[in-house]
């Protein structure tokens, strides 16, 4: 363990442990970038709980995330451990219904209740969690 990269490992663990995980600038409550805000709004519209990691507090988070995912930009949405994409792809998939499908939103018999933006059911990660 000592020879590996602890931060990258934490990021990988977060991706593995959270079925729907958004790396973003800011928080779902206070997105700090238009692309992150749009992605959060889409996820909230789908109505499935998601976890979020703010990459802004430490530039190393973004560096390690991009190295891990081979994706240069933030936001990045992971579903079941796989990179789905950034804002553009999430938007396209939402418009085509693929996103709802991949999040299991269509499988619900009744529409899922829209979660409170501030309190997603999954534990919201923060920089403190990653250290």
């Amino acid at each position: 363990m000592s020879e590996t990269n602890p931060l990258r490992e934490e990021i990988q663990n977060a991706i593995t442990e959270n079925p729907v995980l958004l790396f973003m600038k800011g928080t779902p409550d206070q997105p700090m970038c238009g692309f992150s805000a749009r992605t959060v709004a889409i996820l909230q519209s789908v109505g499935k709980p998601f976890a979020a990691v703010d990459v802004l507090p430490d530039p190393r988070i973004r560096q390690e995330l991009s190295a891990l995912s081979n994706w240069p930009t933030v936001p990045q949405l992971f579903v079941n451990g796989e990179l789905v994409g950034g804002c553009d792809i999430v938007t396209e998939m939402y418009e085509s219904g693929e996103l709802q499908q991949s999040l299991g939103a269509e499988a619900e018999e009744a529409p899922a209740p829209a979660p409170e933006v501030a309190q997603p059911e999954s534990k919201p990660l923060s920089i403190e969690d990653l250290r």
Partner: peptide, 16 residues
């Protein structure tokens, strides 16, 4: 889509 977008990002590398 991911792979398509990566092709585009790769054109610009660290400039993105």
């Amino acid at each position: 889509r991911i792979a398509q977008h990566r092709l585009v990002y790769e054109v610009f590398g660290a400039e993105i």
